[in-house]
Amino acid sequence: MPNRISIRIDGELVQAERGQTIFEAAQSNNKFIPGLCQFKGLSTVGACRLCVVEVQGVNRLLPSCTTPAQDGMAVITKSARLNDYRRQSLELLFAEKNHVCAVCVSNNHCELQAYAQRLGVTNVRYAYRYPKLHVDMSHPRFVIDHNRCVLCTRCVRVCNEVEGAYVWGVAGRGIGSRIACEMDRAWGNSASCTNCGKCVQVCPTGALAEKGFAAEEMVKRQDLVERLATIRGTMNPGGPR
């Protein structure tokens, strides 16, 4: 069986490898499809539903990140309905938690924020929930801020599939679901965390971040000049030269 197949994306005929998902096929032909929970190198879960596309002959919208591309498939990635549904999906995420971009550690480095602009979300039509959520600073190097979490579970998957530490899991159910460290332990006294920081790298938003990089945490090295001066013996006794 030839491993190269051809599918039609938004009317244009493109090449793809057999076994690729529609999302991968689109990406390799730089056709834009949004996707928050999708991450190269991790298993696909089809949770954020942003990458949903229309496939001719199928009356249901299909998640492109989990649906294998088949030869002769005709895929539509942009339509009024899809754009409206994606905007609604993003707005639901914004309304669900406390996404205060202005003071977020990941301001301007957040996939949620970027998709909002790209898909034309200028405001959120749903009522904000303002949930009371925890910020766990107990880890010496990292911090997890549940206010910014979109439950894409990239952190859970990278910790299980790549690092193999199984620190993170999704606890609770429904709207009460939240990322939890082991038996709901503080991250600082986790038993199995290897401090590798992979979860921080894959997190699309400001939920997982490295300490010390937020503007507010900036500590200027005030002792620098004095130390150099003493080494060079050019310490100035104070007063005009």
């Binding site: 914004f94 406390n98 996404h99 205060v100 971009c101 202005a102 003071v103 200028t122 405001n123 959120v124 904000y128 303002y130």
Partner: peptide, 8 residues
Amino acid sequence: VTSNVPSM
């Protein structure tokens, strides 16, 4: 637009 910082 989003109640931003005041909403904290």
